Amino acid sequence: MPEMKIAFVAGRSPKAQGALEILSHIYPHVSPEEADVLVALGGDGFMLRALHRYLKLKKPVYGMNRGSVGFLMNEFRPDNLLERIRNAASINLHPLRLEAFCVNGERHHALAFNEVSLFRETGQAAHVRVSIDSVVRLEEMVCDGVLVATTAGSTAYNMSAYGPILPLGTGVLALTAISAYRPRRWRGAILPHQASVEIEVLNPQKRPVGATADSTEIRNVLRVKVHEDRSLWSTLLYDPEHNLEERILREQFAH
């Protein structure tokens, strides 16, 4: 079996940098461009940044938690790293693609592995119209915002907004309201992954709205289009005893 070439990428926190120093002394390593596998050291936020930064390399990513929650990460242990990577299970994550049309005439594109969200920018509630596959489903929603989440992102901000937790591999997206005032009891919807979501901002001058795709922020949007881009993917590796399916299932029964 040819020797596995690994690259270490780490967040800036002392814990992540300490882990980088330890592993760099134990294992031979190369640049991300030369590697077979990327080992990401940090928390979930750093993992998302790594997925974006190295997406075009199409290298699998094995994360080890040096952050707080570490939902997307494996346990940090310096020993037997190569064996753990060889025995790891994998899952492909497809990002959401955001196209945003702004008040000033600009158009922006961004990707999101967790969610695309829209938020009010002032103290006044946002008024938005929601269409799915060119069919208007909500003529007007009054809310703090609305988000579209992937299965992997359904346990992040989507869960905090009382959106549904989506098992991996189910081929669906979550459309979730953020503090909806009207329709009063509308909590959201579960959409097929191939659905195209369009959200129009009503009265954007008086009630401005911004859009966020993971860490990319866009101000003063008129409307946005969101769909899952199946032509792009990033492969996550995880220990069989620490798999994402089990963690998502546990979240649904958490107290």
Rank of each mutant, 00 (worst) to 15 (best):
E3G: 08
M4W: 08
K5Q: 13
A10Q: 09
G11F: 09
P14R: 10
P14S: 13
P14W: 06
K15W: 07
Q17I: 12
G18H: 09
A19R: 15
E21H: 15
E21L: 15
I22S: 10
I22V: 08
S24K: 06
Y27M: 13
Y27H: 12
H29S: 14
V30N: 02
P32I: 09
E34Y: 15
V37Q: 01
V39A: 04
V39L: 10
A40P: 02
A40S: 12
G45C: 10
L55C: 14
L57V: 00
K58A: 07
K58S: 05
K59I: 02
K59N: 05
V61E: 01
V61H: 00
M64E: 07
N65K: 06
R66Q: 08
F71N: 01
M73P: 03
N74P: 07
F76D: 05
D79P: 07
E83T: 04
I85H: 04
L93E: 03
L93C: 08
P95F: 13
P95T: 14
L96R: 03
R97T: 13
A100H: 12
A100N: 06
C102V: 00
V103T: 10
N104C: 10
E106G: 14
R107Q: 13
R107L: 07
R107E: 14
A110D: 06
L111D: 02
N114L: 07
N114E: 09
E115Q: 04
S117H: 03
R120Q: 13
R120V: 02
G123K: 11
G123M: 10
Q124M: 12
A126R: 03
V128M: 14
R129L: 06
R129V: 02
I132L: 15
S134E: 12
E139R: 15
E140Y: 09
E140D: 13
E140M: 15
M141A: 10
D144L: 09
V146L: 15
L147W: 10
L147C: 11
V148D: 03
A149L: 03
T150V: 10
T150Q: 08
G153R: 00
S154Q: 04
S154D: 02
Y157P: 00
M159F: 10
S160P: 07
G163Y: 04
G163V: 09
L166R: 01
P167E: 02
P167Y: 00
L168W: 01
G169R: 07
V172K: 03
A174S: 14
T176M: 05
A177D: 07
I178R: 00
Y181H: 15
Y181L: 15
Y181T: 15
P183G: 11
R185T: 00
R185C: 06
W186C: 11
G188K: 04
I190Y: 06
H193G: 00
Q194H: 12
S196Q: 13
V197N: 01
E198W: 08
I199D: 01
N203V: 08
K206H: 11
R207K: 13
R207W: 06
P208S: 13
G210M: 12
G210S: 14
A211L: 12
T212Q: 15
A213C: 09
E217K: 14
E217S: 14
I218C: 02
R219K: 14
L222S: 12
R223C: 01
V224S: 11
V224W: 06
K225P: 02
R230P: 05
W233L: 11
L237A: 13
D239F: 07
P240H: 06
E241H: 12
N243T: 01
N243Q: 01
I248N: 01
I248H: 05
R250F: 01
R250I: 00
E251S: 10
A254E: 06
H255E: 08
